[in-house]
Each structure stands twice: as C-alpha cells, then as structure tokens.
Amino acid sequence: MEKEISNEILEKWLKGWSLSRNLALPIQYKSGFKVDVNDEKQKSRYVFSDINSDFLQLSETIFEPWVFLKVCNSFERFKNLIPEKWQVQPQGYMMSCFHPMSLPNVSLHEDYRLEYENYNSTFVIKIVTKKGELSSIGRVVLVDDLAIYDRISTEINHQRKGLATFVMKELEKIALSKGIFNNFLVATEEGKSLYELLGWDIYSLYTSIVIPS
C-alpha cells in the first residue's frame, strides 16, 4: 500500500541523490525542494511530496526546457491541471525496505571481483571482470537514519547472472555495519521487479514532467 511521503524523508532521499552525483545539496523551495543538476538534459529539478499550489504554479510559470517538475503522486491526478507544454516521463517508484532485505544466497563467480570506493558519504560497490571490465555497480548514501541506494545497474552482456542482487547485498552490509536498517530508493519500471523480489515495497509513485526542447 502506498504511503504519503513526508518532506523529511523526501529531503533525506534528495540529499542522498545529490551526494551520489556530486551535486549541490537540495535547497528548500516553498513547500518543496530544488536541486541544480546543470546537465544538458536536466538543468534543475523541483521536487514536491504532493500536488499543491506551489507545484501547479511552477507548471504555469516555467517555460525553459529541461527543467523537471517531480511529485510523489500519479500523473492522472494532475494531468488536467497543468499546461499542455509539459511531457510526462516514464513512471518512477519510491520504494522502501525498513527491515533486512530478502536476499537469496548468491555468491560471486570466480570470473568476477569486487572493488570499493567512497566519497561524500557515498559507498560504491563495483563488480568487474578479471580484465577490469565493469559489469555491475551500485551506490549507497547514508543520511542520518536512512540508507539511500542509487544508480544500481548491470551492463547488458553481464545481466541475468545475479550481479545486481550481489551488489545490493554488499551495499546493505555497509548500511547495517553503520547501524542503519531503513532503506530507500527510487526505481524505474524495470528495476522495480528486482527490488520487490528482495523484499522492497512501493512507498509512493514518483512522477516527472519536463518541457523538451
């Protein structure tokens, strides 16, 4: 069952998202938050916990392309309240796992090895081949009592081998070693099924709209 997300959790997740990407931390914008991304296809993002007058006002006043508006609700709830200039993006899912993950007993094949890295409260786990080719990667950022998982991916020619699951297992070990049991992430449609298998639940829908160039 979906829950109403608090601004406290939203800010912690957004802080973790920003730290993972070496961006400036989110700043309060009225009832939501703003992050300057400074990317060609995402200049900035405004994030709100729910559809409200601040969110709707921004949808009227922004005309610049590649400025994203994001809200923890479904597009159906507000599509008739915003100008037609906006284009909805693929559905995202805020997901939580406030207990140990349901991880299968996976081990790493001898063809692979682990590499570790950390920066900005962000811990990185990489699985690479013996030749040094990156096969799978993921990050966890620790923000207060929340472990925020980010950018979990596996290269196409290394998929279906349980590598992403192994990355999640190693990232969870890091969070647990710091006494953090509350896990949070935003998943794509594709990633959602993996996380559900590992015991995660959908916390809230996460919808993005943008004006393309």
Rank of each mutant, 00 (worst) to 15 (best):
R45C: 10
R45H: 11
V128D: 02
Q159W: 03
S208H: 03
E155Y: 05
S102T: 04
Y116C: 04
R113M: 10
G138V: 12
L10R: 01
S204C: 09
I82W: 03
K70I: 00
I174T: 10
T129L: 03
E64P: 02
L81R: 11
I62K: 04
C97W: 00
V124H: 07
S20F: 11
E4G: 06
L163R: 13
S121H: 09
Y116K: 11
G92D: 06
V124Q: 11
G132L: 08
M101I: 11
D150E: 13
F75I: 01
R77I: 05
Q28T: 14
F68A: 02
E170W: 10
I125Y: 00
N182A: 09
E110D: 11
N182L: 10
G199L: 13
K15G: 05
F98M: 07
R151H: 12
C72E: 03
V141Y: 00
Y206L: 07
N7D: 09
Y149K: 09
L171Q: 10
K43V: 15
K12N: 03
F55E: 00
V167N: 00
S135P: 03
E196C: 06
I82S: 01
T61F: 13
E196I: 13
E133W: 01
L205S: 08
V88L: 05
I148N: 01
F55Q: 01
P26Q: 06
S18C: 09
K192I: 04
E84C: 07
D50A: 13
S31R: 15
T61M: 08
Y112Q: 02
N38L: 14
L108T: 01
G92P: 07
P65R: 04
V210Y: 09
V210D: 01
A175C: 11
L197K: 15
V124N: 08
S204P: 00
V106R: 12
R139N: 12
K169A: 06
E11I: 03
A187G: 04
F63Y: 14
D50T: 10
Q28S: 15
F181G: 05
D144T: 09
